[in-house]
């Protein structure tokens, strides 16, 4: 069985020292090993951004795609080969601005993949513009007078979109993050994990200390029941989304693949492409 070290490669990340993304990379590597994967059984599909580079830093199959489109690529890949464990990953701009349409619909579709957002409330790669996750009033290069638009609440949106697995974590809490990713991988269906991942270079507001002060770990909340949709929604609204842990999980709904008529347990990629003469004859006969 592979250890987390086998999920490392010899590429040195080009992230700034102290960037939250390092821990997310480590957590994915640990979670992959902990659930018993071999590197070739894992594929990481990412978007564009500082965060998007992650697929190149993990020893697995990696697809660094285009801005905002990691999710449809990851879903296509999973449908092609359901034996693979597929993780999609990217930034808050990637997933909640340009790719928001895909995020909502991937949640609805419920293909069995895990989506990890590296949420730094800013655009890192393009050097510090506002993101849909930026706080109102946040001054960035593109909002010199402070952001006017309201802050997006991705977890509430996920809940409203029919999510079957919603979690949030903080990149400093490697233990919680690793275990949530493991849970996400094991979940049958789409698992959505938003991770606070401080950008030490461009975001001087949402810093490590700021998060430590402002987040509530659901472990500390008495009688929290992650199978209770209303409780999850209430808690998200009460806390302004500042909670970490497993927020909601619905174990009853089947994944998309398991509901598609005719979809077989054997990966499509391994099936025979040739149709038989008899089948062909039948298909043609429809047009006689």
């Amino acid at each position: 069985m592979a250890t987390f070290k086998e999920f490392r490669n010899n590429v040195k990340p080009n992230w700034c020292p102290g960037c939250g993304d390092f821990s997310i990379q480590a957590a994915i590597q640990r979670a992959a090993a902990n659930v018993g994967l071999e590197p070739e059984q894992l594929a990481v599909v990412s978007g564009i951004g500082c965060s998007g580079r992650i697929s190149g830093y993990i020893n697995a199959y990696g697809f660094h795609s285009i801005h905002g489109r990691a999710l449809p690529i990851a879903q296509g890949l999973k449908l092609a080969n359901r034996d693979l464990t597929v993780i999609a990953s990217g930034g808050d701009g990637d997933g909640f601005a340009i790719g928001m349409g895909h995020t909502v619909h991937a949640i609805r579709r419920n293909v069995n993949i895990t989506y990890i957002v590296m949420d730094n409330q800013i655009y890192g790669l393009t050097k510090g513009q506002t993101s849909p996750r930026s706080a109102v009033g946040f001054k960035t290069k593109s909002t010199p007078e402070g952001a006017i638009e309201s802050t997006l609440s991705p977890l509430e949106i996920a809940m409203a979109s029919g999510a079957t697995f919603v979690a949030q974590s903080f990149s400093s809490d490697l233990k919680q993050l690793t275990s949530l990713i493991e849970e996400g991988i094991k979940h049958e269906g789409f698992s959505f994990i938003n991770v606070f991942s401080p950008c030490v270079t461009f975001n001087k507001i949402n810093t490590y200390d700021w998060f430590k002060e402002n987040i509530i770990n659901l472990n500390t909340v008495e009688n929290y029941d992650s199978s209770n949709r209303i409780m999850a929604m209430t808690k998200l609204m009460e806390s302004g989304g500042m909670i970490t842990g497993l927020i909601y999980q619905d174990k009853t709904r089947k994944s998309y693949e398991n509901q598609v008529v005719g979809f077989r347990p054997e990966p499509l990629a391994k099936q025979n492409l040739q149709i038989s003469p008899t089948d062909f004859e039948k298909l043609v006969a429809e047009f006689k």
């Binding site: 697809f63 285009i66 449809p72 879903q75 296509g76 890949l77 619909h105 499509l268 990629a269």
Partner: peptide, 24 residues
């Protein structure tokens, strides 16, 4: 054994198909 997915838009359609081709 296959299927058609009606996606949310054409960008998702082509990228999903690219993902599937990548997957073999």
């Amino acid at each position: 054994g296959g299927t058609v997915i009606q996606t949310e838009d054409e960008i998702a359609a082509i990228t999903m198909a690219i993902g599937a081709n990548y997957g073999g």
